[in-house]
Write a protein that binds this DNA or RNA. Structure first.
Lengths: 363, 363
DNA sequence: CTGTTAGCGCATTCAT
DNA sequence: ATGAATGCGCTAACAG
């Protein structure tokens, strides 16, 4: 079908041995400059591209990175993957995509991935239930990097954000706007990020000398429905009992809150100001547009790839580093977040800025 | 690091030759039932999974499907990819993801993909500029399937929708609601789907005995800004000149229209009813929620994979089918679309249904 | 039905 | 600095 150009062809045409061609490909050992150029030229002419499959097999070092993701329709994922793809683009690696749907056991998948022997390293988004398995693999020497946009922060190389500080900023923003009775809708306790965001909320109140009213702290599931029931609860309170603002631990719940609030006659932000967390694409387009903490998803993807590749290369350099965990201190890349101000927090009620008009990006 | 279990191990433990093990793996030739079971058992015990890389190399038939996509942040893509991933899931193939960003020449990428020799077939979403290159490859025998959510309908195996019929439905829906002066905002002429949608619009008017007023047909770019300028134009018309409804060729432009209309004081749907095309996730959440034609993106992904794999297997079965194009009739899978009624078309103004309330899905 | 023999395209020892 | 030989893990002809 397609007469693939092989190293052998190049070798013949350039009048050298296959080994030499391989040498100029991998730039490892020394090749006389003149020879190298000749080989390179022939490769150019023939449009030669080495077979990743064969190279991986022979060298034992596959240049495929496995990327394990939740369903791509989860709103945070595409932007992360865009960062991953862009970072990979600049390397000679390729992405093997393993997109899991909820119905399958992730551990099984991981095992299958590894057994296939295709990929030599793994990038995992939202590790969730398979954290322990990943830790085991990592300690056995498999380069693994975790992107924890949910902030699970396992004992693994990871990139993510500082949830505590970010939540602090969100809460403090409300405080600065003059709100005093500030509620919080938490994520589920199992998520470390939920705890951290709660801590940030607490800390902000404390620093501002505001009391922490347990009656104003609601527990949610990170899903839309939690937002709705929270809104219902607040709507049933008398205006004096009711908080004047709320920090909601993720945008998804905030959507539910907004939508239910509207139906229940609670005006946002006049009756209750809202700040969310994540800044997924929809957040700019709900009514009112949601003030929220922007997670740098794209950058998380990029950084994760860079970290993963550096781990991989480090492993290739140091051949016999203890088969069992060399127990390197787990690397953590923490990216800055940013408060995105929109209408839901009430900051723009006085003087709306054009930038914050509901407009849709042109792509 | 990880002592991979090889065929050789299995062969030794099961007391057979490597070839036999390979045979039970590929289920091609006959193996005595007893032997097969023994081998299978050993494989189970050892947790053996054959190396895709090696199998591909040796057999010349890689089980990796290359998937070429625009940036994942384009709103139609994640849902398509979800379908692709799910379909692949059920097979023993894996996905190699090539996500392109606008800045790179897609033809170069395609060449690189093929040269790598990793993948033996290609799934292309939104082929756009590289259609001719793909056709060439396909005629050389490379299994290629195109998902044309933009409806470019090349001379290649493809899955998509019937844009003409769908546009007809959209327009006819407005007509049935009683609108008589119905405008259309077109996509760019280069896109075949834009033409087809325009034809559907025309046909609907004709069938209803309504005149086609060229002054009510606007040309756009499929981007948000087109929607905005179109809205501006309509706002400048006197109420009698102004159309009472508009069919917009994609949702993206409809967003611009909605957003600008609001700013300009045009009420949707009271002043102008709007129907879009695509039904991307945002469409349920803009104000007012957008009535639109739903493209079955998920199913498109699934069907594309199935078609691609069937092509691939067909090729493996018929060994020497003309190196040059056997010129099979280009297969086309056409999936049904569906009109999703929301508020922007005015159909719900009288009796709103709960289903159409702005609510957010719980996932 | 099953074992034996060759490679797939490349990286990596050895030699020279 | 370069060539020759060996093998990665597997499939695909061959033989028997």
């Amino acid at each position: 079908m397609k007469p693939k150009v092989t190293i052998e062809d190049i070798a013949r045409l350039a009048g050298v041995s296959k080994a030499t061609v391989s040498r100029v490909l991998n730039e490892r050992s020394n090749v006389k400059a003149e020879t190298r150029e000749r080989v390179l030229r022939v490769m150019q002419e023939q449009g030669f591209v080495p077979s990743l499959a064969a190279a991986g097999l022979a060298g034992g070092r596959s240049r495929l990175v496995g990327v394990l993701t939740p369903p791509l329709t989860q709103p945070t994922i595409p932007e992360i993957l865009r960062g991953v793809a862009e970072a990979i683009e600049h390397t000679d690696y390729e992405i093997v995509l393993y997109s899991t749907n909820a119905s399958q056991n992730p551990t099984t998948i991981v095992n299958r991935i590894l057994a296939l022997g295709l990929t030599s390293c793994l990038l995992v988004i939202q590790p969730g239930p398979l954290t322990s398995r990943l830790q085991q693999l990592a300690s056995q020497g498999l380069p693994v990097v975790v992107i924890d946009d949910q902030g699970s922060l396992p004992d693994l190389p990871s990139v993510g954000i500082d949830n505590r500080v970010s939540a602090y900023q969100a809460t403090m923003h409300l405080i600065r706007l003059g709100y005093r009775r500030i509620a919080h809708l938490q994520g589920p306790d199992e998520f470390r990020c939920a705890q951290e965001r709660y801590q940030g909320y607490q800390q902000a109140l404390a620093d501002a000398g505001l009391p922490l009213d347990p009656a104003l702290v609601f527990s949610g599931t990170f899903e839309t429905s939690s937002g709705r029931s929270c809104a219902a609860t607040l709507a049933s309170l008398s205006p004096t009992e009711r908080p004047d603002a709320i920090f909601i631990a993720n945008d998804q719940m905030a959507y539910g809150f907004l939508s239910a609030a509207e139906a229940l006659g609670l005006r946002i932000p006049q009756d209750i100001a809202v700040v969310g967390f994540d800044d997924i694409p929809l957040s700019a387009h709900v009514r009112p547009p949601l003030t929220t903490i922007k997670q740098p998803f794209y950058e998380m993807g990029r950084n994760a790839v860079e970290l993963l590749l550096s781990l991989l290369h480090a492993q290739w350099s140091q051949p016999a580093s203890s088969t069992e965990g060399g127990h390197q201190p787990p690397i953590r890349i923490q990216l800055p977040t940013r408060l995105v101000m929109r209408a839901s927090c009430g900051a723009l009620t006085a003087h709306r800025r054009q930038e914050e008009e509901p407009s849709f990006s042109d792509d």
